[in-house]
Each structure stands twice: as C-alpha cells, then as structure tokens.
Design a protein around this nucleic acid. Sequence first.
DNA 1: ATTGCCATGTAAAAGGTTACATGATTCC
DNA 2: GGAATCATGTAACCTTTTACATGGCAAT
Lengths: 173, 173
Amino acid sequence: MNTLSYGLLSMLSYAPFSGYDLMQKIQPFWPAKHSQIYPLLAQLERDGYIQHELVVQPDKPDKKVHSLTDLGREALSQWLSQPACPPVTRDELSLKIFCMNEGDPVDIQRLLEQRVEYCREKLVWFHAKSELFAHKRMDSSPGIVLLMRRALFSFQSELDWAEWALKELRGEG
Amino acid sequence: MNTLSYGLLSMLSYAPFSGYDLMQKIQPFWPAKHSQIYPLLAQLERDGYIQHELVVQPDKPDKKVHSLTDLGREALSQWLSQPACPPVTRDELSLKIFCMNEGDPVDIQRLLEQRVEYCREKLVWFHAKSELFAHKRMDSSPGIVLLMRRALFSFQSELDWAEWALKELRGEG
DNA sequence: ATTGCCATGTAAAAGGTTACATGATTCC
DNA sequence: GGAATCATGTAACCTTTTACATGGCAAT
C-alpha cells in the first residue's frame, strides 16, 4: 500500500468523510487530485481497510461516506510504528535562483517578491486557523496542534529568508 | 519542456557537465534518478538546447560532457522571466503526526527524534559547505549563496520545531 | 448567464522510481 | 574477495496530473 493510501486512512481516523472531503483535507500534507483518490478508495474498500455508506442529500449530490474498519485501524497503527520516508520538496524557485546569473536581476526580484507574498498569505491563513482553535476551543487534536505550529515556523523562516534575499539583491546587505 | 529539463539547463549554465555529474548536482533542488536524466539529455540535444563532447578517460569510463547552446541559454533566460510554480512538499511524517492518536506515543517520539537527527545532519553539511565558500573563497555565485542560506534557515526551523514538539510530548511544555 | 461548489468517476499522458544490464578501478 | 565510485543506457512499473464526462444548486 502506498503513502497516499495511508494518508487517506489517517484522515479517516478522525471521522468518516466523503472522497470529496478527503481530497480537500489531505492537500496540505500530501497533495492529490480527486482522480487519484476515488480509485484508491475503491481499492482500500476491496482490501477491507475501509467501508462506505451512501448518504442521500436533497440539495446536493449524493455521497459515499467512508469510514475505517478494524483492519484499517490496525494497518494505521502498524504503519505509525515504522520510520517515515525522508521528505521530498520540489521548488522551481530554487532552480531559478540557482541560475539567476543568466537572466535579468529584475526577474529574480519579482520571483522573490512573489514568494514573500505567498508566504504571507499562508501565514495569515494559519494564524487565523490557530486562533480559531485557541479561542473557540475547537476539536484541536495534539497532532493538528503540532502541525499547525510547524507550518507557522516553516513559512515564517521562508518569509524571513526571502526578505533577506531581497535586501541582499538591492544592495542593502 | 518540463521543469527537470530547465533544471538541467540551469546546472549547465555554470559549466559543462556529464550526465552523472548533473544527476548528483541537481539532487538538492530537484531530486531525480539517472534513468530520468539520461533520456532527457538526449531529448534536449535533439531539440538543440545542449550539445555534447565525448571525453575519453584512461582510468575511468568515458563520458559525455554536455554544454548549453545559444538556444539553451535563451530558453533559460526566457524561463527565468516567468513566475515559478508553487513549491510541492510531500512528507510522510506529517501524515503520521496527523493521526498520532491511533498509535503508541513512543512511536511518534521516535519519529520526531529521527527527524531531529536528520535536520542536524543536514545543518552540519550545509555549515561545512558555507564555511568552505567563506574561507577558501570558492566559486560561490550569488544564487548559491542565497540557496545555502535558505537551507540553513529551513533546516534550523524544522529542527527547532521538532525539538519543541518533543518537549510538548514529554509534557515539558 | 456564467461562475463556483458539490460530488463521483474513467482514460490518457506525463513524471518519477526500481530493476535490469555492463564494466573498469579503487579502497577496505 | 566485496563494496563503492564512475559512467551510460533501457524497460517495467508506479505515481501524479490533465482531460473527458455528468449534473444540480446557489450566488453574482
């Protein structure tokens, strides 16, 4: 079973969800399109890790609500006990900065400004989310609290770097 | 042309390299195996972006040393002027932390300790590299300096987070 | 009216990993 | 003697993206 499959089981460890919900929820951790998720859900059901119930909705399309079976829960905890694969990041910006000598310095500055903006947006989003959890006492599990804080750490450090890099390029270093 | 192709052109903007060299050099920015790189190099040559020269080595296997053509250099600077795709990260650890309720807390602590170790190793490596550049006055281009610093920023923030998370789990928060 | 969200699926293409294949040299 | 490095390639497989396909409801 591949990592995305375990990812789907991970999401379902909280509550039953539709494929559509799962697709949205898994994005921050393991980006995937619906075309990849629906077939995997069918496979997970064939293999006995999940089951589904058809929920008829009057205003919206019917949906399949998937939930973990005992076998699925077992598979999850067994997977948790094994070491995690090293993270993989692919960022076009790195490559562009690497060969920035080849282009117009203004292009590189624009790229960095875009990255600054991107990080700021992410930070606003995560700050809003974590305030929701703090104030309104939402269903914040220990895992989500850890991941939230990591996102804040990592986007902040990327933002700091990008701003520093812009200063360097403008000769203010 | 895909991003890996531009990545290869980016590496070649510094100097001519063999496919084997390129495979190693591109790893930090855009992980790829040799089986993906060799066919792409052939294609880039067919399309006129690079050319190669056969270099015979007495002690080691012969190699093809690839270099940018004018067309390749043009393609690079045109690519630099366009916005970069958003970065993509896939980290199994995120998923495991997300559903950590399902498993033994000791498993999660072990995973975080492994991540701490991983970050420390990376930091040691990047610090060594950047000292090399600083002291021995190596061929440090502006791009490489920026990327080096980013690596230090990002691994440090991941390390800080993982150590904070371990404290939280041990109830020292 | 058109865009966007909800909801599910399949098919084709592109991107990426693992395995197969070869062979000399160097280091332990 | 066995593993690691250098060096290039192909084939099979798995993963991921893009495109095809459908259709109702809500909001601007």
